[in-house]
């Protein structure tokens, strides 16, 4: 799969990371797509009480929405962080995107264990970026 952008959004919908190779106007458009994805995430996250269907409580939210030439996937953690993955229009299996999110979760946990990182701030650590780049190149 070809990854266009990876976004990590905090519990207050504060962006912690938006990683993409594009710059300038194109980057702005992609950021806009990531923010749009948040609304779709909210929709997919059911209210906490009352709902008994267990599949609704998975972290992996699946395909959030397709645009003309992009597909946007979502994932939400127990700590209300949202991960957004923007892919190109080629065919991908859910298994692969899910695996990517799980691995992203792993390196996110490593990143917040960095003693210089304060919870809720943007993630800028070198380790995290290089881990993320190698994760992207592998998938």
């Amino acid at each position: 799969m070809k990854i266009i952008c990876v976004g990590i959004i905090g519990p207050q919908n504060n962006p912690l990371l938006i990683h993409t190779d594009f710059s300038g106007e194109e980057r702005k458009n992609i950021e806009y797509i990531v923010y749009t994805a948040l609304d779709f995430c909210e929709e997919k996250i059911p209210a906490m009480s009352g709902n008994k269907k267990s599949s609704l409580f998975e972290s992996y939210l699946g395909l959030l929405f397709p645009t003309e030439d992009l597909r946007v996937y979502g994932y939400v953690t127990n700590t209300h962080h949202k991960y957004v993955l923007v892919l190109d229009d080629s065919d991908v299996k859910d298994v692969d995107t899910k695996k990517f999110f799980v691995q992203l979760h792993d390196i996110f946990i490593q990143a917040i264990s960095n003693p210089f990182y304060n919870y809720g701030e943007k993630i800028e650590s070198l380790n995290f970026i290089s881990n993320l780049k190698s994760l992207i190149s592998k998938s």
Partner: peptide, 9 residues
């Protein structure tokens, strides 16, 4: 909480 499904209540 990484490896568990999300909390309901």
């Amino acid at each position: 909480t990484k490896d568990r499904s999300r909390f309901r209540e």
